[in-house]
């Protein structure tokens, strides 16, 4: 009945294909808005984690540790149910965007912190010695150098974010995983487990695979360029 080879089951999935596309659309939409929030938080807290102020560094640390050391599901439930029972429900979409954005933001801020801290101290000192303010130093000197270290792990975080939309299932979301589950357990549509989850998985793969690929390509080309630079530098030293 739910068999992989059942033509019936596949036909059912095909009939209800719009359900899957809607789920995909919802997933991408949630991920996109969450991504914007995550970027903003990641940059803000990443910069805070590397700044001179102990207080700001402390705040960034607390944010990152709290978020990274509790499950996303818990954060999502907390945000949704705590507010819902207080009579201030945000709605599932907004809840999802905030929870996923805040969660991914913590990881992005760590990526940015590591990227900034990988730049030698002398670069900061040169910028200070020329009279650059913090903003100018970051914009013109530090971030352009750390971006290549930041980007590959950043893309991986985007992939995680897209996959993590599946957690919205717990609060009754309308994302791809939630709709797939509704489909296979629905009164009229139920039963086509294998085809339904295969299709759902394929849709995730189509979105995520190119991104992961991009990240590793980026990483490889950076390594290549580094090598070329080292060779050029060595050649210059010889000559």
């Amino acid at each position: 009945m739910s068999g992989l080879l059942s033509a019936d089951a596949w036909a059912k999935v095909w009939t209800y294909r719009s359900t899957f596309l809607l789920g995909l659309l919802n997933t991408v939409e949630t991920a996109l808005f969450a991504l914007i929030l995550a970027f903003a938080l990641g940059i803000l807290f990443g910069l805070m984690a590397t700044c001179g102020s102990k207080i700001l560094r402390g705040i960034a640390r607390v944010y990152v540790e709290l978020i990274q050391n509790t499950p996303l599901l818990l954060q999502l439930c907390f945000l949704y149910y705590a507010l819902a029972f207080a009579g201030k429900s945000l709605g599932i979409l907004v809840t999802g965007i905030i929870a996923l954005g805040v969660y991914t933001g913590a990881y992005m801020s760590e990526v940015i912190r590591a990227g900034i801290q990988s730049i030698p101290k002398g670069q900061f000192e040169a910028a200070h010695s020329q009279g650059f303010h913090y903003g100018g130093m970051m914009y013109h000197i530090i971030l352009p150098q750390s971006i290549k270290i930041i980007l590959p792990p950043m893309v991986n975080q985007v992939v995680n974010l897209i996959k993590n939309t599946s957690c919205l299932y717990i609060v009754g979301g309308a994302d791809l995983i939630s709709l797939t589950y509704s489909f296979v357990t629905g009164a009229n549509t139920g039963g086509a487990y294998a085809p339904a989850y295969l299709v759902s998985g394929l849709l995730f793969f189509i979105i995520c695979f190119p991104l992961s690929n991009l990240a590793s390509k980026w990483e490889n080309s950076l390594k290549m360029r580094e090598k070329e630079r080292a060779v050029a530098a060595a050649a210059a030293a010889e000559g």
């Binding site: 030698p120 670069q123 010695s129 009279g131 650059f132 150098q145």
Partner: peptide, 20 residues
């Protein structure tokens, strides 16, 4: 920042040129 910008430059042991 302003005092340094207007009055003082520095040359470092490790050069600290901007590699990018």
């Amino acid at each position: 920042t302003k005092m340094v910008r207007d009055n003082i430059s520095m040359v470092f042991q490790q050069f600290n040129l901007y590699p990018h």
